[in-house]
Write a protein that binds this DNA or RNA. Structure first.
Lengths: 208, 208
DNA sequence: TCCAAAATTGCGGAAAACCCCTATAGGCAG
DNA sequence: CTGCCTATAGGGGTTTTCCGCAATTTTGGA
């Protein structure tokens, strides 16, 4: 059995260092290449040593998240990435798969689940929880379920307690247009009003 | 130097087990009594072995959170509790202090901060971040800043996408009363509208 | 290249939220 | 007992959000 070289990225030091300490119990099977707590630190560490598997926490899809995976995919095509996060949901998983992420483990799962996933992924197999496995075969993004760039702009302004009127001014468009965007977003996310919107966005990790 | 007996409670196995593995590097200074991932597990573990210091993650003040501290305080008055969480804010810290929590460390801090806090707390000293230290001397709860039980009921209904009208029906009170509660809550939390309310509540951990 | 799907833009009208005020009854602490 | 706070509720408004519907531009695939 060869040893798996592992990189760990998590903004919570306790997770990165703690996981490294925990995994060192499995020293015959894996080897910690590095731990990183920031995006800059991660990119620096990857240039020094490229592990086989990278465990990444997604804090928020638009901050330390989805775009990072795209970047990693370009720079290090051979790197196998596992998303290890407390975010959930089929939309997220579809996104991850479409970006080339190899594995997904939720943080509430036992550590065994992560270790199992690492083994699978190191062997070149995609690995997500059973109930999402069917997504692997069709892991393209159904565009009509994703919030667009324009919608994201509006979403962030809403989260900043801006009214539709202020948003319209800020973006230089009609109030009615902004309203329409809002409703479309509600529809896509399956919520009924602002309360639901904000809650769902935090659940998905789009806003802090 | 005596060894500190430590219990760890966190719903994320990676944090509980990882932290335990990490701390075992400091074996001359501390000793892990147990790790727990659920409330029931914690209470069972405490009956078997009572550590000197208990590190607890607060997921949400009303779920695995503030009320737990009150319970622990009653049952195990000598137990020194450290809140180790990714929630923040002066309101939270005041709440914690008022419930007898001895220490608070944010999860984005380096692990050294937690270890330093454990030393302080084990020595009987309250320990919170510098900028909140002034709260220790007056750690009573300013009641007018906390959401009341009734307000919490309403807050949860709002988070469930209920309209003011539906809330009024559900609670058997007037729409106007519910409106009044809403505005009062906004005022207390310093937000302008539902968007701000929901975001602030998730920040404080009151809703998922 | 051309068509269909989508993103983005917009309007009128209804519903809900938001604001400022007043007012009563009960509980609890100084 | 006398404030202070909570919970209740109303009047009378303004503002914002929500709902259907529709036009225009952009985009992506056959």
């Amino acid at each position: 059995m060869n040893t798996i070289s592992i990189g760990i990225f998590d903004d919570h030091p306790v997770v990165a260092s703690g996981l490294a300490a925990y995994l060192s119990q499995y020293a015959d099977e894996c080897e910690i290449a590095f731990t990183a707590h920031s995006r800059a630190g991660l990119l620096a560490a990857l240039q020094v040593q490229l592990p086989a598997v990278l465990v990444v926490d997604i804090v928020a899809p638009d901050i330390v998240g989805l775009d990072l995976f795209a970047e990693l995919q370009n720079k290090y095509a051979s790197l196998k990435v596992i998303a290890y996060t407390s975010l959930r949901g089929p939309i997220l998983i579809e996104n991850l798969l479409s970006l080339g992420v190899m594995g997904y483990v939720h943080k509430l799962q036992p550590l065994d689940a992560l270790i199992a996933c690492m083994r699978q992924v190191d062997a070149g197999k995609r690995n997500v929880p059973e109930k999402y496995m069917h997504l692997i075969s069709r892991y393209h993004i159904p565009t009509n379920r994703l919030v667009t760039a324009r919608e994201m702009e509006i979403v962030h302004l809403i989260a900043n307690e801006a009214t539709t009127q202020r948003i319209a001014e800020q973006l230089g468009i009609s109030v009615k247009t902004v309203e329409n965007h809002r409703l479309r977003i509600y529809e896509k996310l399956g919520v009924k009003n602002v309360a639901g919107l904000i809650l769902e966005l935090t659940r998905l990790g789009y806003i802090s």
